[in-house]
Amino acid sequence: MANLSMRVEDQSTKKVRHSSSRRYWNRRTNVAYLFLLPYILFMLAFGLGPGIYALIISFADYSSGLPRYFAAGIKNYLAVFKDSRFAFTFTNIGKFLLISVPVGIALVVLLALLLHMRPGRVASTLRTLFFIPGAAAGPAVVLLVIFMLTPQVSPFGFLLKLMGFNAFNDLITPGSLAFIFLIMGFFVGAGMWIAIQYGALEGISPEVMEAATMDGCNEWQKALYIKLPLIRPYIIYQFILIFAGNVQLFVEPQLLSNQTYIHANVPLVWSPNQLAYSFAFDLGNFGAAAALALIMLIIGLGASYLMVRWTGFFKIEN
């Protein structure tokens, strides 16, 4: 090896250096792909694969029970738009997003900022406490919230009764559903997002904070003028994921509308994803269900794209 390089000598020094640096980069990217591989495989199997399957069956005709591929044309898409529940479910989910996305983000960021103001044992204990409900899965939380909102059994029953709610059904009205789902969603999701935003705050350079202190900022000014702008990318990230998650609301309304066990004033089909479920499993029209699922995908992608464009989220600084 040494002899070889001796022989080629100076004339090729530059070349060798170039090629070695390219090999170095190749190896680095190969390793990166290796690390990405499990994710990519699962994404193909459980994300992109079903997506493509949905695209195919959204053009399939199910009127005889079994799929006839590419026989429906755009009939399934028309069936979705023509369904009398389409406008209802999209109005509901629109209202829910209008409430849940801003409220969710504002509360999470506020709590993270508050925790960050007083670092130490109290903050880390609270952070853990906030995180714990996230361990409960969606359906369990629904049951828990039903339990908490039933005045006869809830530990806060006396409070509910003071507010004039004597039965579970006094609380669950078509008008209050969006708020009930907000409570359920926030209870599960907030802890994780508080941890993420807190992590973002921890990442702010101490010099910046010191400089702010030197300039005479109080804690609130620091939070508002220094910390908040610095964690902006994480807030946008939270917006995108919360929007994509909440637009797919399904478990909560589906469980609450189970009239066999819970006799509440909850429409059978409240959210668009429930409508897709109803297309598939009430009417046997998997094609229309797939078409609606793709419409939901486009809405989620569209909102994320607009947000990214509007904020320049992916722009690399410097």
């Binding site: 059904n169 006094d170 009205t173 078509p174 509308s257 009239q259 066999t260 006799h263 509440a264 004033n265 909850v266 429409p267 059978l268």
Partner: peptide, 14 residues
């Protein structure tokens, strides 16, 4: 029939 009818009774009361 039961789910919509249950919803009807609850809605009437509410």
């Amino acid at each position: 029939l039961i789910s919509p009818l249950t919803q009807f009774t609850q809605d009437t009361y509410q």
